[in-house]
Amino acid sequence: MTDTNIELNNTIYQRMKKIITLFVLSIAFGSTLLAQGKYFTRDGNISFFSETPVEDIEAHNKKATCVLDDETGTLEFAVLIKSFEFEKALMEEHFNENYMESNEYPKATFKGKILDYAGVRDSGFPPGVELKAQGTMMIHGVEKEITTTGYVTRDGENMQLKSSFVVKPEDYNIEIPNTVRDNIAKEIAVNVDAELKPLKK
């Protein structure tokens, strides 16, 4: 074996070492990196109200899942339709069976982004600043682009998200027969209130 050969072998050995180290590092930290700067909850509150002269209907869901990416302001919500609780059992049954068809469409989701999030984050979430979120709402299997407003506040380690918006059943192909047309509002008010914790892995 010549000296050059030994030198070459050494170089290869050094590089291999580097590669293996990088390889191990990427495995070890890959998953941690994923979770960095993310906030989440599994028990967010989503409620809705339908007000008509005939009847008021309200329902609450305390099991909404939400993840917010603090780096980018990207935001996702998911909620099980069957976890909405009504004051009357029959309303809940009809909501699931006849209107939302929750066996077929078990979830409602929102995937979007809080606009100008970085600016508000960097100035420490000053209170009372209304933010806009834009994204895709999916209800009853129908996707629709929406823009809504809301508030983000930081509460110690946690983040608080609040938003109110209006959903029209007809936009999501939710059929309301003539017999109950007067009982269900054309515009349903939805309130979202979620407290997110840092996501650690």
């Binding site: 890959g30 979770a35 993310k38 989440f40 899942t65 993840v67 995937k111 996501l199």
Partner: peptide, 15 residues
């Protein structure tokens, strides 16, 4: 690095 890209698909998958 593909998992990093995949997170753009759904944040909820991180949970």
């Amino acid at each position: 690095s593909t998992p990093l890209l995949a997170q753009e698909g759904s944040l909820l998958d991180l949970l």
